[in-house]
């Protein structure tokens, strides 16, 4: 009997902790919004983060986007061949990339690259008292550290997604047309016929939302880190796991709402 009670107790506690954490992240979001509109905006810090989150992620995004497009073309080809509909491969790749895989894969890659770095950097600043030092010098850490990262996340993710979408379609074309022998004209005309701007916009909206999630979660986990090097390591792992899971779950709901 006691064991059952203990299990229920632990389960309830875990749920409560998760809800509390969600609340904290929401409060952090509100305070980010508040500090975002309070001048002066730290443009130099924002550009620095945009470079880190955006520019320096281009390579991995190009790589994952291209290969995803290539493998989709390959997989799609075997399916469509059964119905003699190989010319639909192009539009399948394009729709899949713009609506779904472009934003999600980009967000996951940037989470691994930049979300983890945010948690590690802020966590180190927390345990070495640099965040306290900001408070002591009457400088708000949310404004100095978190606002630039969140702005960079929200702005750069859609831009990276554009790159990913484009490279995916290019990769699909490369596999579909020269390698598998699909007619180039049919490949392209089906894309332009079946993909409309709405597909792309929705994908980019999702990307911006994912950018918000990964930067908020990364900053939150780092900001509350305690317990030296081990604590920073834990914060980084938790940030990547929580951000990735949140991105995939919110992806379903965003898709359900928008499409």
């Amino acid at each position: 009997m006691n064991k059952i009670a203990a299990t229920v107790d632990n389960f309830g506690r875990a749920i409560l902790e998760n809800i509390e954490e969600m609340g904290r992240i929401l409060l952090l979001f509100l305070s980010v919004l508040m500090w975002m509109v309070r001048p002066p905006l730290k443009l130099r810090l924002i550009f620095k983060q945009m470079e880190f989150v955006g520019v320096k992620s281009i390579f991995v995004v190009v790589l994952t986007g291209t290969f995803t497009g290539m493998v989709m073309a390959l997989q799609g080809y075997y399916g469509f061949k059964m119905f003699n509909a190989e010319s639909l491969v192009g539009s399948t790749v394009a729709l899949g990339m713009t609506r779904e895989l472009g934003p999600v894969l980009t967000a996951l890659m940037v989470t691994a690259r930049a979300g983890s770095a945010m948690a590690a950097e802020l966590g180190t600043m927390r345990v070495t008292e640099q965040i306290d030092a900001l408070y002591v010098m009457a400088a708000n850490p949310v404004k100095h550290l978190i606002v630039p990262r969140v702005i960079a996340g929200v702005l750069m993710l859609p831009l990276l997604t554009v790159v990913s979408d484009f490279m995916g379609i290019l990769g699909g074309y490369f596999v579909g047309v020269p390698v598998l022998g699909i007619n180039s004209g049919a490949f392209i005309s089906n894309i332009t016929k079946l993909v409309d701007l709405g597909d792309i916009y929705h994908g980019l909206t999702k990307a911006a939302f994912f950018g918000l999630i990964l930067s908020l979660v990364g900053c939150h986990k780092g900001f509350i880190a305690t317990g030296g090097a081990e604590g920073v390591g834990r914060a980084t792992t938790e940030a990547v796991v929580l951000a990735s899971v949140s991105i995939l779950i919110s992806d379903y709901f965003l898709t359900a709402i928008m499409f």
């Binding site: 180190t124 070495t128 640099q130 030092a133 002591v136």
Partner: peptide, 19 residues
Amino acid sequence: LNEIRKKFGMLFQEAALFD
């Protein structure tokens, strides 16, 4: 509180310089 804090300086244990 920030106005009050401008009266203060603080040297942290490990200096807490921004690295």
